[in-house]
Design a protein around this nucleic acid. Structure first.
Lengths: 249, 249
DNA sequence: CGAAGTGTTGAAGCAAATCAATTTTCGTGG
DNA sequence: CCACGAAAATTGATTTGCTTCAACACTTCG
């Protein structure tokens, strides 16, 4: 399996051999975390930085009444903490599946930012994309019917997983329970169930076991009003994907 | 009127005299922009950075069907662009009221980041807070009834305006139309109207002209489930406000 | 093999949308 | 300063997407 950190950061800035070696050294020592366990907790100041290498995790808050809001979906290659050290977390981060993470000191992150300009540029890009995804969630999850919300989430996950080479054809690992999906979209799990069925009946997706397959990517994106611009994937990578016949238009 | 940029950045890091002078020089040359006009447009790469000095602005996207999603509310002292240069905007920024902005080159921003460590730290803090506000909007505007959403927005605006000294007592300038409020919260303007009336009937707020007064701050915050942690206002400033009797607890 | 978690289905209720009409406020020019 | 038109706010009636509650079936796994 390829290195998701390098694949992802390559999206933000082309890296040199030395950069790759530096990143590989950082991600060499890993920790395994079981599913459904907190990695960082609200109100804490994370002592070290956590880099997700394998598995799915999420940012979340518990609201009054016990309701949980999932604010972001973290995939391999994503940084779990605030990008800023020394600021108390305003939310928690938890694993969804069993995960592999790399733990690094803030000094090491600082070193990357000051002494490795290409990595620094890539990390800055990653932060910009995180912010951008947050805005897209706010727009799309806040203003549109549940079926389009869910379709949009599926399109986004597919696009993000493809960057780190975690898709096979138009299928990918989709380990979320319907309750988790509901917490991401702000709808009840019962409604998630009905909306998922509708997307299947409409021939847009198939879902077997924990593998989701997009049956009709063009129609799904159209239905979801998905526009990948907000992911800020550079043209050079889109062109490469086009050459491999993975994209239309 | 005090300088909102300095007041705000002081929140992120104490500044020295030289820092203040640098910032004052930057904000010396200003541009006036009428209400309801775009400052930065989606898909453009902003040639220069825009710093809001006076007035209210917003980040927004137009969705299919002509619906508008307002993704953030910009107040004096806020940076209008992505914090990153050279990345295409994934949304637009427009004025709500007439605004005064300072326009600076990206080189000047770069210089602040590299040669003025305290300003750099403060800008980084500001970015963290922007991201944090986005998450709070996602959680609170996505998962809760409209009346609490609106109450929460009011609490947030009050807290942010107080930092830059734009409040008098518990009243502040509230120039939004009900349609704009609806676009922020993802609800219809008709419903905004009914919810506003309810908050008034409940004795939580008063709204005359374009001035909103919080009649019962404690009850409003309680009702809104507002917890100011996510604004990352440092204890040293909260303590100062407490001394002035502006805060409970 | 049993228990807990997850997914599925139906029925009833509700918060908010939509549609539509009316009043109030505001901005602008005469 | 007033008159006018446009924008914004208000109100009522109707509809609907989604929630909630509840029961039941299916997995998964210890």
């Amino acid at each position: 399996m390829n290195d998701p950190v390098i694949s992802k950061l390559e999206c933000g800035s082309p890296l040199g051999l030395a950069d790759r070696a530096t990143l590989e050294a950082i991600t060499a020592s890993t920790v395994h975390v079981p599913a459904h366990q907190d990695i960082v907790r609200e109100n804490e100041i994370a002592a070290r930085a956590h880099l997700l290498l394998e598995g799915f995790a999420c940012r979340y808050k518990i609201l009054r009444g016990g309701r949980r809001a999932i604010l972001a979906c973290l995939l391999p290659g994503d940084l779990c903490d605030a990008h800023d050290a020394f600021v108390a977390m305003d939310h928690s981060v938890a694993t969804i599946t069993p995960c592999v993470i790399a733990i690094m000191t803030w000094a090491a992150v600082e070193d990357l930012m000051t002494n490795h300009p290409r990595i620094s540029r890539a990390l800055s890009w990653a932060r910009t994309v995180d912010e951008s995804i947050l805005r897209e969630w706010l727009a799309n999850m806040g203003q549109r019917p549940a079926d389009r919300q869910l379709a949009h989430l599926i399109c986004e996950l597919f696009a993000r997983l493809r960057i780190i080479d975690r898709v096979s054809g138009s299928g990918f690992n989709f380990p979320f329970t319907q309750e988790e999906l509901g917490d991401m979209l702000g709808i009840s799990s019962v409604h998630v169930n009905r909306v998922l069925q509708q997307l299947r009946e409409d021939g847009l997706i198939a879902l077997h076991g924990r593998v989701l397959t997009i049956l009709d990517p063009a129609r799904l994106e159209q239905f979801a009003e998905f526009n990948r611009n907000y992911l800020h994937i550079p043209p050079r990578l889109l062109a490469a994907a086009q050459d491999r016949g993975e994209l239309r238009s």
